[in-house]
Amino acid sequence: MALNTPQITPTKKITVRAIGEELPRGDYQRCPQCDMLFSLPEINSHQSAYCPRCQAKIRDGRDWSLTRLAAMAFTMLLLMPFAWGEPLLHIWLLGIRIDANVMQGIWQMTKQGDAITGSMVFFCVIGAPLILVTSIAYLWFGNRLGMNLRPVLLMLERLKEWVMLDIYLVGIGVASIKVQDYAHIQAGVGLFSFVALVILTTVTLSHLNVEELWERFYPQRPATRRDEKLRVCLGCHFTGYPDQRGRCPRCHIPLRLRRRHSLQKCWAALLASIVLLLPANLLPISIIYLNGGRQEDTILSGIMSLASSNIAVAGIVFIASILVPFTKVIVMFTLLLSIHFKCQQGLRTRILLLRMVTWIGRWSMLDLFVISLTMSLINRDQILAFTMGPAAFYFGAAVILTILAVEWLDSRLLWDAHESGNARFDD
């Protein structure tokens, strides 16, 4: 018995066209964080690309023209004298008006014999932002004059995390709450300039795509075929072959399989920071003279006294001054041990922890910024005066060393310790 099946006739004509040209192939790229070699397709503007294995951002879609970056830099340069030299806060102490600005706080630190601690604050609040705007201006002028731009481009990517104007702005709020127990506070004209400078700096850093600047100024022929001998440069993120001198053909720094002496430098910085954190938390970090009496505060006791007036601000200072430094030390110690013992479990967790400490590390400088600003506000000789204690130097040095330890660690070593050939990683 035959089955009668109805015929289905399409209502619209289906047209099949042959592909007349070869589909576009992607360029081969190595991930600078996990060293995976993959094919990167062509990316349009405002599109980002991520590593298929570790999800690290390979290409950032946010990109401004150099002219727009230069305009932002010149605007920031105009704001800087007002943000640093004009009063941020006014207080009335014992019937006398006192003005506080950024430069005055750094000068008070240096004047009291601790120039190293003052230079830490100076670099993060004044030096690094000033280098940022002058570097962008150098790129703008240098591109037109045919100057060598490689050193500036190499420095810009590392400079971003040292620009800490946003953290200093939080420190202004913390210092205001600490001082309000002794005097009446009012915002100064410099505060508005400083807030504007923070906003412009944040926007500029978020749109400063150094890798795209490398592509514009020093374009290189990408690798179009897969080759395990391809290496990625950690300076400019170019994937290719080393030249005859073993250097990256684009930025001219040595092109090595792994960062040289990464573990040794990381261990040295980490152990030194552990040693410095002990006096930083045991010795007094601030000293207040009130009517001839002397009151010393460690980091913890200062947080407890701050909690009596504002528990939320005390929580912020606790996280930045105690929780973050010790968390960074514990995480980095764990990561280094996992590399030495070739741990194969929990790779995803370790990668996330490394990215976390990379982002939060700079916030530990908050305590030094609060001390710097408070020193310029309260300084009335023996009637009422505020000065920093010996722990300030140890704390600042420990924070900087932990930042350097994270920067010096080559994250690809975590993958080397893991089993080879993993296309995915999980716990």
Rank of each mutant, 00 (worst) to 15 (best):
R412G: 01
G113D: 12
S48N: 15
L306Q: 00
A83M: 03
M109W: 04
F82C: 07
G127S: 07
K12C: 14
L413K: 10
S308D: 06
A18Q: 12
I199N: 07
M365C: 06
P284I: 10
D426T: 11
L213C: 11
G173R: 01
I285M: 10
H237N: 08
W140V: 15
H237L: 07
F194R: 00
L278G: 10
V133T: 03
I199S: 14
E42C: 10
V406W: 07
L191Y: 03
H184Q: 12
T224P: 10
L257F: 15
F192Q: 08
G105R: 00
T5V: 08
L409C: 05
V179K: 02
L366A: 09
V121D: 05
L234S: 07
A423P: 09
L205G: 15
I330A: 15
R412T: 01
P10V: 12
I14V: 11
I322R: 02
P32L: 14
F395A: 01
T349N: 11
S206R: 15
C124G: 05
L77N: 10
L347C: 12
K12H: 14
G389I: 00
R294Y: 07
E296H: 09
M147A: 04
Q220M: 05
D114Q: 06
L270T: 11
G113F: 06
V121H: 07
H261S: 03
L277F: 00
C343S: 13
A73Y: 07
Q220C: 06
A392M: 05
P24K: 07
L377M: 07
I330M: 15
M332Q: 07
T298E: 09
F326A: 04
D181G: 04
F123N: 06
A272I: 01
A49L: 13
L384K: 01
R348T: 10
M332P: 06
I106W: 01
A100N: 08
E212R: 15
V324F: 15
D60P: 11
K342R: 11
T11A: 12
G105E: 03
M36T: 12
W140A: 13
D166W: 15
D27V: 14
L153P: 02
I339R: 10
K12L: 11
R150S: 04
R424S: 15
L200F: 15
R30H: 09
F238C: 05
P219V: 14
S286M: 03
L277P: 02
C266Y: 02
C266P: 04
P129D: 05
A312W: 14
I400H: 06
K265M: 05
I126N: 10
I98E: 04
I136H: 04
G95W: 12
P325T: 06
L213F: 04
T15H: 09
R25T: 12
P6R: 11
L323P: 01
V170P: 12
I199M: 12
C266G: 14
L77V: 14
V275T: 07
A272C: 04
V232T: 15
I8M: 10
R216L: 05
L257W: 15
S286H: 00
R225G: 07
I285K: 00
K178C: 00
R226L: 07
I185C: 05
R225M: 12
K111H: 15
V324R: 00
I106G: 03
H207Q: 14
W107N: 15
I274R: 00
D35R: 02
R97Y: 05
I288H: 00
I322L: 06
L139W: 03
S206N: 15
L352T: 12
G188P: 02
M120S: 03
P279I: 09
A405R: 00
A423L: 10
W140C: 15
R258C: 04
V313T: 12
R258I: 04
D99T: 10
L153K: 01
S321L: 00
C31S: 00
Q345P: 13
P242V: 09
H252S: 02
W92C: 04
